[in-house]
Amino acid sequence: MTKAWAEEILDWNYEPPYDFYNDNNKEESMKELLEAPYFAVLNDSGNLAGFYCIGYAAQVPLGYLFGAYQEDCVDIGLGMKPELTGKGNGGSFIRFVLEQVKGSKSIRLTVADFNERAITLYERAGFKKTYMFAGEEMSFFVMEKRSL
C-alpha cells in the first residue's frame, strides 16, 4: 500500500446502502492503511481496483465482545473500487485475494448482514456463515472457508 493508493481509497464513495463503507475518519484510516497489513490490488493497466487486508485489520472490533474470532484462521477484509462493483468483477477479485492468502489455515471474513451482494459472492467462493453478532446499528456475519 502506498500513500497515493491509500488517499484514493479514502476518497471512494459508495452509493446507499453501501455508503456504510464510506470512510468518515480519514486521518485514522490513513494511518491504518499504511501501518496495518493492507495491500493494493491493481488491474492489468496498473490502476487501483481494490484492496485487501489480513489479520487483525480485517476483524470488526465488536466481534471480540461476542467471541467471533476465537478459532485460528486467516482473517481477510477486502474492498473494491465503487465503479467496479455490481458489474460481475467480484468473482475474479475474490479469487485473486484468496490466491494471495492461501495456506494451511482456514480463511475467515466478516461482512455486514445487509450486504447480500457480497454474501452471495463469498458463498460462491466457498465461504459458509459460521457466526453472527450485532451492535446497536449493524449486524455482521462471520464467514469461513475451510482449508482443504
Rank of each mutant, 00 (worst) to 15 (best):
T2M: 01
K3A: 00
A4N: 06
W5K: 13
E8T: 02
I9K: 10
L10K: 00
P16R: 14
P17C: 06
F20M: 04
F20P: 09
Y21Q: 13
D23M: 00
N24W: 09
N25A: 07
N25V: 07
N25P: 03
K26T: 02
E28Y: 11
S29C: 01
K31E: 04
E32W: 08
E32F: 03
L33N: 10
A36C: 10
P37C: 03
P37I: 02
F39Q: 11
V41K: 02
L42G: 12
N43H: 14
D44G: 10
G46F: 05
N47G: 09
L48P: 06
L48F: 08
C53G: 04
C53K: 12
I54T: 11
G55I: 11
G55Q: 11
G55S: 05
A57R: 14
A58N: 01
V60F: 05
P61F: 10
P61A: 08
L62A: 06
Y64G: 05
L65E: 14
F66V: 00
G67D: 06
A68S: 14
Y69L: 04
Q70D: 06
E71T: 10
E71H: 09
V74F: 12
V74E: 13
D75V: 08
L78W: 13
G79T: 03
M80L: 05
T85E: 07
T85K: 00
T85P: 07
G86C: 06
G86S: 13
G88F: 00
N89K: 14
G91P: 06
S92E: 13
F93S: 07
F96T: 00
L98G: 02
V101L: 14
V101Y: 15
K102C: 08
K102H: 09
G103K: 00
G103V: 03
G103D: 07
G103S: 03
S104M: 09
S104W: 15
K105P: 01
S106K: 14
L109E: 04
T110H: 14
V111E: 00
N115Y: 03
E116P: 00
R117M: 06
A118H: 01
A118D: 02
A118S: 13
T120R: 15
Y122K: 07
E123S: 02
E123Q: 13
E123V: 06
G126H: 02
F127P: 04
F127R: 05
K128F: 15
K129V: 15
Y131D: 11
F133D: 02
G135H: 05
E136T: 10
E136M: 11
E137C: 10
E137R: 14
S139E: 03
V142C: 15
V142A: 07
E144G: 01
K145C: 05
R146Y: 11
R146C: 07
S147A: 11
S147D: 08
